[in-house]
Design a binder for these strands. Structure first.
Lengths: 227, 227
DNA sequence: TTTACAATCAAGTGATCTATTGATTGAATT
DNA sequence: AATTCAATCAATAGATCACTTGATTGTAAA
């Protein structure tokens, strides 16, 4: 007996889902959500061997989740559109809602750093307009350069200790990094609060902001432009 | 070296994605989107052995996508909330957008039956309010009974030939069934057009309508109430 | 041409997944 | 208590997947 059109379509959908079915590939997608990258850079960031990263990336490509281009001897991978971030967000929301295990891990690792509610996109937009907050991007400098929220200051987490003076002491700091589970933002909020600052974190990160169609800025940003 | 909290969370997300990574499980979820069902009924509809269906359902349960309850000697499974339908929709949209293979299958099997644009939720709502359309639910009677769009007439596809007289000849018919790739609605539209009726299909099906928070009706519906 | 290097390919091993089979559990019925 | 039936569990064989190793391709530079 032959399978019908519906089964064939469902098999394709299942293939996309299976491509999302490995922690390493989800982490690769998270990094690709920041900016396009070469295989070697991705492998290093996710902690994979080059060959292994290459094969994972090719699985993602077969599933239509990423695309690539060659430039000289480098091959750069990128997300195949903002729909990928939307799908990842839907996956995250579903897992957060119905998986007790996610809740347990989050409580264990993140809870003490995150007693306050995270800030929603809407709330951040309103407070930015009112000029009430300092928006802090704690990702590495190169990721910031490839795209960030408008008006954000970039202080990578590793430098935060030494550069606290750059942040206005009067205004609340709202920190963000790569996504909802990027630990940088949690750490930054904890560090700032430990120094008596008012700080909260954005509910997710740069890719989700961009996928939501909200404005983004690129390139370096002068300090004057920010303060 | 131990894996950090992010890897642990991503592994959980990957587990949910893997649970979606098999055509049979997607089909089970599609049927569960219509109404709660016993294992035996699901196995029969999807064409699986009882043991196999049971094991697939348990994988879905471990991933937090479905829940179950025992009633007498039957165990009924149901979706773990409308978020599951949202996630399935996100998966479908991403696959439709970026997988050439999906497009190829769709063209090959569905295109000739579907030359007209499907009707969106918004358009259907507007035309229902204006009383311009006959809404036709071509799913089996029991699925209709568990929930359907308000004002819909239920004529299962198998009976459509004999019951054409029940449909107003003046008004456009909008048909729907289980979801975006349920073949019933395509077939119904083709059959109606072959008899000179004006007919289109809804862009997706009952579960997506319900998950979107739009009104649904339950129980049998008298013919008078409809016409 | 030779060299260098990013990335992919190919092959192999151990692990995980799928589907079947037959045994077992749990609740209702006789 | 014995029977019946829905569903799960357990064991198995075959398929697919993940990761490593070493060879290969493709481009740029020497």
């Amino acid at each position: 007996m032959s399978i019908g059109p519906k089964q064939a379509i469902l098999a394709e959908f299942a293939g996309v889902a299976r491509a999302l079915g490995h922690a390493h590939r989800l982490e690769l997608l998270e990094h690709l959500g920041q900016s396009e990258r070469g295989v070697d850079a991705l492998a290093a960031r996710v902690g994979l061997s080059l060959a292994n990263a290459s094969q994972h990336l090719q699985q993602l490509r077969r599933a239509g989740l990423v695309e690539n281009r060659r430039e000289g001897k480098f091959i750069y991978y990128r997300l195949a559109g903002d729909g990928v971030t939307d799908l990842l967000t839907a996956l995250r929301l579903q897992a957060e809602r119905n998986l007790a295990e996610v809740d347990r891990i989050r409580r264990g690792y993140f809870a003490e750093r995150d007693s306050l509610e995270p800030v929603s996109h809407e709330e951040l937009l309103a407070r930015m307009e009112a000029g009430l907050v300092t928006l802090l991007d704690v990702r590495p400098q190169d990721e910031f350069g490839h795209g960030h929220l408008p008006g954000a200051v970039n202080i990578p987490l590793s430098e935060l200790q030494d550069r606290l003076t750059e942040l206005d002491t009067e205004r609340e700091v709202i920190a963000y990094c790569r996504g909802a589970y990027c630990v940088f933002a949690f750490e930054a909020v904890a560090a700032l609060r430990a120094r008596g600052r008012t700080a909260r974190r954005l509910i997710d990160g740069f890719p989700e902001w961009k996928a939501a169609g909200l404005p983004v800025a690129t390139g370096e940003i002068s300090r004057e432009e920010v303060t």
